[in-house]
Design a protein around this nucleic acid. Structure first.
Ligand SMILES: [Mn+2]
Ligand SMILES: [Mn+2]
Ligand SMILES: [Zn+2]
Ligand SMILES: [Zn+2]
Lengths: 126, 126
DNA sequence: AGTATTATTGCAAATAATTCGCAATAAATC
DNA sequence: GATTTATTGCGAATTATTTGCAATAATACT
């Protein structure tokens, strides 16, 4: 668990992330709870998302939209995404990593570009 | 060439991108020219970067820093990047795509995570 | 159960990146 | 050199995200 206290806010953010089939933004989490009677402040959502990322409970997904998207990390759920440049549709791409580049071309998506970025520690920082 | 006029501003943005060995931000382009006597307005830099991206002359690189990075696309220069989570160091990762995931582990970098995102058109949008 | 401790929240204001409107400027054309 | 209009500079607006601080509530402790 993140932090030290299991608050209503955290339960609700988890719920919002669980309910979504695609990575969602902080604002979308906010909107989904706005209806749900339990209203959470947007700043608190950001603070919790930060903590959840640091605790490795969620992944941050970037599509260059000018905002971050978040999704829960679950067991054996490692995957990538397809982002439609036209409508913003997001689809999970889950397959053998070694074959991923070969296989992606067989899908129903028209692939125009892909970005693979690595994160970690450089020699100086290890 | 982008747009229709070959302006001093465009020459200078190209020059700044060429001179950099790593993807740079709009602000970094601005700073590099601020010294260089020829001062360009930041908004013009953004406008030109947009055009250059649409003309496929540059790539936009995202590391989740909250800002975009740009680099020139050159012939046979397709590659990915390594981003140090600690110091922000950026290194090019250029290798056979099929073997990329196997090979990345042999480098001097400590890989903690990687993101591979696809861009293109979904079935509805093709 | 009541009290104390302090992590967490709400709220409003601050930042930072990026975008936009519009009049002034300058590259290309005539 | 005059004309046309793409491009620029400037300032203001927008949007995502962050931050300070006092109020609140989750847990620990009588
Ligand atoms: Mn996903
Ligand atoms: Mn590069
Ligand atoms: Zn689409
Ligand atoms: Zn480093």
């Amino acid at each position: 668990m993140i932090g030290q206290r299991y608050t209503k806010t955290r339960k609700n953010i988890f719920k919002a992330l669980s309910n979504s089939k695609k990575p969602i933004t902080a604002q979308e989490i906010f909107n989904s709870l706005k209806n749900n009677d339990e209203k959470i402040n947007l700043a608190s959502i950001y603070r919790n998302l930060d903590l959840m990322e640091k605790s490795d409970l969620i992944s941050v997904i970037l599509f260059g939209e000018g905002k971050k998207r978040f999704e829960l990390k679950e067991e054996n759920s490692h995957h990538h995404h397809f982002f439609c440049e036209n409508c913003g549709d997001i689809e999970d791409i889950k397959m053998n990593e070694d074959k991923i580049l070969a296989n992606i071309k067989k899908t129903k998506f028209l692939i125009k570009e892909h970005k693979l970025e690595f994160f970690g520690l450089c020699p100086d920082c290890q």
